[in-house]
Simulated assay, not measured.
Amino acid sequence: MNSRRDFLQKIGVSALALHLAPLAGWANNTTNNEKTYDGKVLRVAIMGLGSYGTRVAEAMQSCTKAKLVGVISGTPSKVKAWQSKYGIPEKNCYNYENFDNIKNNPDIDAVYVITPNGLHHDQVIRVAKAGKHAISEKPMSVNAQQGQEMVDACKKAGVKLLVGYRMHFEPKTLEVIRMRQAGEFGKIMFFQGQCGFTIGDPTQWRLNKQLAGGGAMMDIGIYAINGSRYMTGEEPIWVTAQETKTDHEKFKEGVDETIQFQFGFPSGAVASCLSTYNMNNLDRFFLDGDKGFAELQPSTGYGPIQGRTHKGELTQPITTHQTVQMDEFAGIIFDNKKPVVPVDGEEAVKDLKIIDAIYQAVKTGKKVDIKLS
């Protein structure tokens, strides 16, 4: 497996919780295409035409509230291929040097930045200055300071900043959250998040400190960080962490191979998590309360997400994560819709503050307090 994209497998499919009636039309692409929608459509340009950008583009073909209308890439051949495949006009095509000119293009509402982590900060700020809504893939940046600068820039420009937290719309995940909020698990005691795969090509950007901002933590570990928050319904107040590195040639200074980290929460609940680029078969969340439990495995892959609780299997219809995400983003941008779990820049800064604290705990070997407010 050469990347997170390979590890997380093929097109995302998951389930719809019964309480999410408005999303029922996304049970499959046929139903989705038959839905009538006469509201405002979010017109999106994708920046970064790699494997995940391609996945998002494909998923958007089934959207009812969002449409792919533009591309930004440094590779002319990719631009031409996308133009042909998705019917994108020449006037909506840009490169990394001239994309500031989107400010003069009324046909683009938002730009989805799907480039290496280390580039998000500058690119999102440029998008904001061009007066367009910004969508950033996660992690939003390489540290909390840069993340806050992105939030501030978008606020100053009067545009919205959203982050590609597709799991925040995943129906089995939302059902677990609903059950927890309803008290069906009782007092939450413990969360476990395991995220990892064996990474391939040692020359790829994910193993480049400058481009990635780190190693496995910045790529796959963020799922356990974010998951610990929405699964428990609390924010961590301290962290301890330990790094293991077996291949110093592949995982150079500042590029983590494996980190185990532990959180403490205000209620007394604790979490034990693992982020790695050196082990396969790790994509599992487990939540334990004094009255019940929930397990998702796979928990964050593109699909199908599978889960069970003390009440039995979680069984809902199939959706494509990125299709639902982009349609939901349209509602957030145009109608100020409030998702069950936030997907805005402030949410992403919290994850970045936690990542900063994890790296500090690894470096010092000490328990580090976390302050998210």
Results as ranks from 00 to 15, higher is better:
residue 2 N to G: 12
residue 193 G to D: 03
residue 345 G to I: 04
residue 37 Y to K: 08
residue 102 I to W: 02
residue 4 R to F: 13
residue 6 D to I: 09
residue 43 R to S: 04
residue 51 S to Q: 11
residue 48 G to W: 12
residue 188 I to Y: 05
residue 214 G to A: 12
residue 326 M to H: 13
residue 127 V to Q: 09
residue 116 P to F: 13
residue 287 L to C: 06
residue 37 Y to F: 13
residue 214 G to T: 10
residue 16 L to Q: 11
residue 269 A to F: 07
residue 102 I to A: 03
residue 279 M to V: 13
residue 152 D to I: 01
residue 82 W to P: 03
residue 95 N to F: 02
residue 87 G to L: 08
residue 365 G to S: 07
residue 92 N to A: 01
residue 27 A to V: 12
residue 312 G to K: 04
residue 136 S to D: 00
residue 236 P to Q: 03
residue 136 S to W: 00
residue 82 W to D: 01
residue 128 A to T: 05
residue 105 N to S: 07
residue 109 D to R: 06
residue 236 P to D: 02
residue 109 D to H: 13
residue 117 N to W: 06
residue 282 L to V: 06
residue 93 C to W: 00
residue 79 V to L: 11
residue 6 D to N: 11
residue 370 I to P: 02
residue 267 S to K: 10
residue 238 W to R: 05
residue 1 M to L: 07
residue 189 M to E: 14
residue 244 T to R: 04
residue 200 G to H: 01
residue 67 K to S: 14
residue 50 G to N: 06
residue 199 I to C: 04
residue 360 Q to R: 13
residue 274 L to H: 06
residue 28 N to L: 07
residue 296 L to H: 11
residue 280 N to D: 15
residue 286 F to Q: 09
residue 328 E to D: 08
residue 102 I to G: 01
residue 309 T to H: 06
residue 108 I to C: 08
residue 311 K to P: 03
residue 359 Y to R: 15
residue 151 V to Q: 11
residue 323 T to A: 12
residue 42 L to D: 01
residue 302 Y to I: 08
residue 32 N to W: 07
residue 3 S to L: 06
residue 113 V to D: 08
residue 325 Q to H: 12
residue 89 P to S: 10
residue 140 M to K: 04
residue 94 Y to D: 00
residue 12 G to N: 12
residue 229 R to Q: 14
residue 271 A to M: 09
residue 118 G to L: 10
residue 124 V to H: 12
residue 171 P to L: 00
residue 195 C to A: 14
residue 225 I to N: 04
residue 114 I to A: 13
residue 31 T to S: 09
residue 119 L to D: 09
residue 279 M to H: 14
residue 227 G to C: 12
residue 286 F to A: 12
residue 56 V to C: 09
residue 312 G to V: 02
residue 346 E to K: 10
residue 52 Y to V: 14
residue 147 G to I: 08
residue 77 S to M: 09
residue 66 A to R: 03
residue 338 K to A: 13
residue 30 T to D: 06
residue 89 P to Q: 05
residue 26 W to V: 12
residue 287 L to T: 08
residue 13 V to L: 15
residue 59 A to N: 08
residue 148 Q to C: 09
residue 295 E to T: 15
residue 133 H to I: 07
residue 267 S to Q: 09
residue 37 Y to N: 04
residue 256 D to R: 01
residue 141 S to E: 02
residue 112 Y to F: 15
residue 166 R to V: 14
residue 302 Y to F: 15
residue 363 K to Q: 14
residue 275 S to M: 03
residue 295 E to Q: 15
residue 39 G to E: 01
residue 48 G to C: 11
residue 117 N to K: 12
residue 91 K to I: 05
residue 150 M to D: 15
residue 53 G to M: 06
residue 199 I to N: 05
residue 236 P to G: 03
residue 297 Q to E: 10
residue 342 P to E: 07
residue 181 Q to H: 03
residue 333 I to V: 14
residue 37 Y to G: 05
